[in-house]
Simulated assay, not measured.
Amino acid sequence: TISSIIGSFLFGYITKAIGAKRSITVVYVILIVALILAVTAATEWVFWVAGSLFGISLGASWGASRILIIELTPKEKRGQFFGLFAFSGKV
């Protein structure tokens, strides 16, 4: 949870600087690295690093994906798109 909070704040600034699409690309690269580290972890500290990277990418993807929705949708239909986004997340 702590690393997700850190990732949310950190990628809020990064998204502002480089844009939502690039941020999401960076987030998914971090997620892939975290998953590879977790699968190949031979020691406990590597698993902790992988978990922290996963938390950072999880928090960052929550923030950056919402910003991407704002950028991609027409202003008058944002409520509908956010509703669909929330519904798809629950499914």
Rank of each mutant, 00 (worst) to 15 (best):
G59C: 01
A50H: 09
R66A: 15
F81G: 05
V46D: 00
I30R: 00
F82I: 06
I32F: 09
R22P: 07
R78N: 08
T25V: 14
A17M: 04
I24Q: 03
F47G: 01
T40H: 04
V49L: 15
Y13A: 13
G83F: 06
S3V: 08
G79P: 07
A38I: 11
K16F: 05
E71Q: 13
F82G: 03
E71H: 10
K75T: 11
I24N: 05
E71D: 12
S88H: 06
T40E: 09
I70F: 10
V46A: 08
L53H: 02
A60C: 08
T73M: 15
F54N: 09
V46N: 03
A50M: 09
S4P: 02
V26H: 09
W45I: 15
F87R: 00
T15R: 02
F82P: 00
W48S: 08
I5A: 10
I70A: 14
I67G: 02
T43G: 09
F82R: 03
L68H: 08
V49I: 15
K75W: 08
S52I: 14
G55F: 00
G79S: 05
I70C: 01
F81Y: 15
Y13C: 11
G63A: 11
G63C: 07
I18N: 02
I5V: 10
G83W: 07
G63M: 08
P74G: 06
R78M: 14
V91Y: 05
